[in-house]
Design a protein around this nucleic acid. Structure first.
Lengths: 243, 243
DNA sequence: CGTTCCCTTGAGATCCGTCAATATTAGTGG
DNA sequence: CCACTAATATTGACGGATCTCAAGGGAACG
């Protein structure tokens, strides 16, 4: 493996990098200028309206992308975690979303231009980027469906199950618990609810024996019932084995 | 312009095709196997779970992509119209969404594989696809924010303004009315509301002098107020002038 | 050991959904 | 052009889910 020395081997765990760059011509890979960075918890990394165009590959930690509304409310679009990619916009027009760390966050960071121009010389990389974009879209569609057509309890259960699966690279079968640094306020802003209602719903889910979320620990108490209740599917979390 | 003769010149109006293919090597363009097709209103074109992988460029007409839930409810993800692209998934795993015409629909249709392999030989085309994906993502994010953090009236007003802008290629300044074939039920399924509530909200918006939607005609009565009420922005609808 | 988030709980108000009935429009066949 | 039908739109009464306001408790952190 011939990677620039400043890129840690851990980067290979990131699907797009591990699979695509190993095929890409080394000239491209070397020119990416990717650096490893560490942000403290609760740091705004990219602000809405920034002209800046960077791309981030999350190595470890939790984060969120969100938009602020005029009303002062916040809509969280996603909680990217290890393996996720942020900033895959390739757009000149300033983004309306901000990007913030929730825990301490370790990312591989690079200029968007570097990646897009590299992708012009590496069809494999371009394909891989499209595949990542497709996965992100699938996740976003699930999120939209969750907010649009499910009750508060279903929304919370679905999101917590999804986050558990994403923490474990798309597996849920053997998870009965995972650590989750999100606050009830974070959940509310992601799910179109208020924090107070999220609190009540969590209590209800706990009493029903479905799941428990206390002291940063999510416990899956009855996986089958949750899957049933929320119509949960794993398939949308998969990366494409795009030929 | 050297296009396969079976492709109508109208295809050039579609941003991705008009701008990308004219640059792409002609071999790619000729190999796309794109055909023009016409579907009657209310026809399911692609069903959830289809293994089939086609890509559609809408030439004219309205359509929707949606998912059906176990509960029998429906979540509409988007209403693609002229110039939009459907099926840009590049995924093997079957899609969870269906695609349906609302009015009579004219599309340019091709195998997904043909486009992805063409994009491997045309960096410009690949970039253009990423740009289209970015725009779709921006629209989806706005939709999510709309459902998650706005009241019924705001949701309806925002969606109807967006659709007006998309019908007019991203302009709203000079629109005071447009034809909209969506039913109140369609709006409800897109906005996470019931048709009955959409009806009441439309009445309210009409009485407030903001907008009117009757007999398939949307009239923008007070554009500035609507923009104000819904925090509407045009920027997310733009295609990227991606270098 | 105090300050600041975060969580928890209650009471009342509001938005929106459900159920039910009717009116209006669009489509179809005669 | 009319009669019939189905889809769509409209309205009212009622109930439920969620929000708002308010207060207090617990956990984390300097």
């Amino acid at each position: 493996m011939e990677f620039p020395s400043r890129i840690s081997p851990r980067v290979l765990d990131i699907p797009i990098i591990g699979k695509a760059l190993s095929d890409a011509d080394k000239a491209s890979a070397n020119g990416l200028g990717m650096i490893l960075k560490r942000y403290p918890a609760h740091t705004i990394i990219t602000r809405e309206g920034d002209g800046e165009d960077r791309i981030f590959f999350v190595s470890s930690g939790w984060s969120c992308i969100y938009t602020d509304l005029l009303s002062g409310e916040r809509q969280i679009i996603d909680f990217p975690a290890g393996g996720d990619v942020i900033g895959l916009r390739t757009r000149r027009s300033p983004s309306r979303v901000s990007f913030k760390s929730i825990t301490e966050l370790t990312v591989f960071e690079m200029a968007a231009k570097a990646l897009t121009s590299a992708s012009e010389h590496s069809p494999t990389l371009a394909s891989r980027l499209l595949s990542v974009a497709a996965r992100q879209r699938a996740i976003l569609i699930e999120h939209l469906t969750n907010i649009g057509r499910r009750s508060g309890a279903e929304r919370v259960a679905h999101l917590l199950l999804e986050m558990g699966a994403r923490q474990h690279y798309g597996q849920i079968a053997n998870i009965n618990a995972y650590e989750c640094p999100l606050t009830q306020h974070d959940l509310a802003d992601a799910l179109g609810l208020t924090a107070i209602h999220v609190n009540r719903v969590l209590k209800e889910l706990r009493q029903l024996g479905l799941l428990s979320f206390q002291h940063r620990i999510v416990e899956i108490l009855d996986l089958n019932e949750i899957i049933n209740l929320t119509d949960f599917s794993l398939s949308y979390l998969k990366y494409d084995d795009f030929a």
